[in-house]
Amino acid sequence: MSVTVGTLGVVTGIERNELREVSAAVLAVATHLSVRDVLQTILTSARRLVGARYAALGVPDSEGGFSEFLADGITDEQWAAIGPLPRQHGLLGVLLSDPSPVRLADIREHPRFDWWPAAHPVLTDFLGMPISDGEEILGEIFLANKIKPGGFTAQDEELLELLAAHAAIALVNARLYERGRELTIVEERHRIARELHDSVTQKLFSLRLTAEAAAALVERDAGRALGELDTVRRLAAEAADELRSVVIGLRPPDLAGDGLDVALGKQIDVLNRVHGAVVRFRGGPIPRLAAAREEAVYRISQEALHNALRHSAAGRIEVDLVMRAGGVVLEVRDDGVGFDLSTQEHASRRLGLSSMRERARSAGGKLKVTSHSPGGTTVRLEVPVDQ
């Protein structure tokens, strides 16, 4: 079965599947796949669709080399034997400075042909295309050694131009995505600065004044000096709590880019640096969830950790994030003092539990909290995997 696609002529059902894969990969660049994965999909599809033995794609850096350089059609052993990544020389440099495609019967006859390492495959017919966004050249893609006799055709060139446009979309999306992350980081820094000014700075100012008063009283009124020192200890503890609250309250990192397991692991690394309790994380391969569901799981883990660190006096907290029976399971366990869920005694903690339960419902999940005093607390969340 075949269809006609514009001036590209007739393509087979297999080729249509290749094009569908490329489109899906480009659409996924800002949500599920890294830009490298997308570029690799485009490169592999280009080699198969055009019928070339070798293909490569390069994204230049600012130092005469390449920040990304991908190859297709060679084995890992061949790639390792070739050696270091190429520089922006010869035809590679031409494609990064001239927006015109290059189609040759033999690459070695081009005036800018330079050389290749001893382990490099011998290339003959060649088709190269700049990857451009308007007048800016973002990278290059090229194919070599057409499998069918006769070399690359004008139709091959047109198809590669289409795929290069897909690669440009992926690179531009990645650039915009990175700028968005940078703006988010700046906003978060401003928020933390405001919170530090509003709470921690005031506590530290009071602490300093109280310490100075205690120092002045040491020789003439030791009893009052001891009272002031007690206030110093209290203010220092409150300031430390405020700092820890700021850390725990950090907005979620880039869940879309990092994934839930990586984001949670990063958060726990931070907590281990600012808290006395030992927090251990065990994460397995987790499928991607809808953005709202991933944030709900992350926020519930944050609240459970906040409760354990602020209220349980735990020495050890364990966090598991794994796949079980078709769902994602989060468990946060501490070895602290526990509490009675039926009493009014830990009102702030019970308020946090209400928030967690509401988030679990919004994510279509189930939340179970068990606690024994003494004995510690376990928060278990199960959410289904998106279909």
Rank of each mutant, 00 (worst) to 15 (best):
V10G: 14
A24Y: 04
L27P: 03
T31R: 15
D37W: 00
L43K: 01
R47D: 06
Y54P: 05
A55R: 06
P60W: 00
G64L: 10
G65K: 10
S67C: 10
I74W: 02
A80R: 14
L85Q: 13
R87L: 14
Q88P: 01
V94D: 06
D98Q: 10
P99L: 10
P99V: 04
A105Y: 03
A105Q: 12
W116M: 12
V122F: 04
T124P: 02
G128Y: 05
P130R: 03
E136N: 06
I141R: 03
F142H: 11
A144F: 01
L162E: 01
L163R: 12
R175L: 12
Y177E: 12
L183W: 09
I185D: 13
D198L: 12
L207S: 10
T210W: 02
A216S: 12
L217W: 08
E228W: 12
R234M: 06
A240W: 11
E242F: 04
L243F: 08
P252C: 08
P253C: 02
A256K: 10
G259H: 03
D261E: 15
F281W: 07
L289W: 11
A292I: 07
A292K: 10
V297L: 07
Q302L: 03
Q302F: 01
A304V: 02
A313R: 15
A314H: 01
V319E: 00
V328M: 02
V329Q: 10
E331L: 07
V337T: 11
R349M: 13
R350K: 15
S355T: 13
M356P: 09
R359H: 08
L367T: 06
V369W: 04
S371Y: 09
H372P: 09
G376L: 12
T377S: 02
V385H: 02
